[in-house]
C-alpha cells in the first residue's frame, strides 16, 4: 500500500492539478516536501511512494534529494537552525554569531544536540543581508525566518523549544 497516497489523497490531487496532466513529474518537489512533513526526512519508502504516484523511477526522485539542500535523506534535529554566513552576512558578524551559537549549544556545525532537538547548519544566502545575523528554522512543517539576531535572542528561542519540546 502507498501510505502517502492513502493518507493525503486530496492534497496530492490538488498538487497534481497545478500542472498539465502529462507532466505529473512537476509535482515531485511538492511531494518531497509532503514526505518530509510526514516522515521527518525523505525515507527510501517515501521515494518509492512518490515514484508510484508520479510514475517516475525512484532513482530520479532520489537525485532531487541530493541536489536540493532543503531535502534530507537522514533524520536530524526537530529544529534545524540554518545560519547564513555568506559574504554580506559575514561582513556583519555572522561567522562569529554562528561560532558563539554553537558554543552555547555545545555542538559543532552540522551536529545535533543530544536530546535530538536542534541541528545547526551553515547555509548560503537567505536574501536577508540587511538584517544580518539571520537564520531560518526548518522543521518538518516548514520554514520560518529570524532576522537581526544576537546569540541572546537565538538562545531565548532555543529555550522556548526546550521548555515545550
Amino acid at each position: 500500500m502507498n501510505h502517502l497516497r492513502e493518507k493525503y489523497a486530496s492534497e496530492i490531487e490538488a498538487t497534481l492539478a497545478k500542472y498539465p496532466p502529462d507532466h505529473k513529474r512537476a509535482a515531485a518537489m511538492p511531494l518531497l516536501y509532503l514526505a518530509q512533513r510526514e516522515y521527518g526526512y525523505v525515507t527510501k519508502q517515501a521515494l518509492i511512494e512518490i515514484s508510484e504516484i508520479l510514475d517516475v523511477p525512484p532513482t530520479e526522485i532520489g537525485q532531487l534529494v541530493g541536489f536540493y539542500t532543503l531535502y534530507y535523506d537522514e533524520p536530524g534535529g526537530k529544529y534545524r537552525i540554518q545560519v547564513c554566513t555568506d559574504l554580506p552576512c559575514a561582513l556583519r558578524g555572522a561567522e562569529e554569531f554562528l561560532e558563539q551559537l554553537c558554543e552555547n549549544l555545545g555542538i559543532q556545525v552540522g551536529e545535533t544536540t543530544p536530546d535530538g532537538l536542534i541541528t545547526v547548519e551553515k547555509v548560503m544566502c537567505l536574501a536577508g543581508c540587511d538584517r544580518a545575523p539571520l537564520f531560518q528554522v526548518q522543521t518538518a512543517e516548514g520554514i520560518t525566518y529570524h532576522e537581526n539576531q544576537s546569540v541572546e535572542s537565538a538562545m531565548k528561542l532555543v529555550r522556548t523549544w526546550q521548555s515545550n519540546p
Binding site: 537525485q63 532531487l64 536540493y68
Partner: peptide, 25 residues
C-alpha cells in the same frame, strides 16, 4: 506557486524551468 528547495542555480531561467518540471535545476 511552486517552491524550489535550495539551489542558487534555479535563478538561471532554464534551470528554473527544469526545476519546475520536477528535474535537477
Amino acid at each position: 506557486t511552486h517552491l524550489g528547495a535550495g539551489a542558487y542555480i534555479c535563478g538561471e531561467e532554464t534551470a528554473l524551468l527544469e526545476s519546475l518540471e520536477g528535474k535537477l535545476g
